[in-house]
């Protein structure tokens, strides 16, 4: 593989010349952790937004994965599954023009100002 200089491929060079980080089949890894967490409402809502907006043609599952993969290995190791998904769905919706970055920023500030907890802040808009 040729060396690449653009930022997206820096991850390739740091980790492995052949494969990108997410292509982990057959790579060394530790013990399987069988602990299971209960899916939180916000996580299910992220999933629902993905299913519904991709179903309406705003992006494809390939678009979802493209952003997840471009986030890189550190993000995979440090953030939870739906923390990564919400960012990918958001990026795809921004690219599709569903709303603007400015609209998102304004709305997030408004949401955050409603209270301390998810329950407080999610209730405000309904």
């Amino acid at each position: 593989m040729q060396a690449h200089s653009n930022s997206r491929n820096v991850i390739v060079m740091e980790h492995d010349n052949i494969r990108r980080w997410h292509d982990m089949g057959g790579q060394p890894a530790g013990q399987i952790d069988l602990d299971q967490h209960n899916f939180a409402l916000w996580e299910k809502r992220v999933d629902a937004l993905m299913v519904l907006t991709s179903g309406k043609g705003y992006f494809t599952v390939d678009g979802l994965r493209r952003v997840l993969e471009d986030m890189g290995e550190d993000t995979f190791e440090t953030m939870s599954y739906y923390e990564r998904w919400v960012q990918s769905v958001n990026q795809n919706l921004l690219e599709a023009g569903a709303y603007s970055l400015e609209e998102l920023s304004t709305k997030m500030a408004e949401v955050t100002a409603r209270g301390e907890t998810y329950g407080d802040c999610a209730a405000g808009g309904e």
């Binding site: 916000w42 809502r45 958001n90 209270g115 808009g125």
Partner: peptide, 15 residues
Amino acid sequence: LTRWQAMEIAMRELL
């Protein structure tokens, strides 16, 4: 509230 939960609420309301 986490940043990512705020993002979910904001996205949902905008949509």
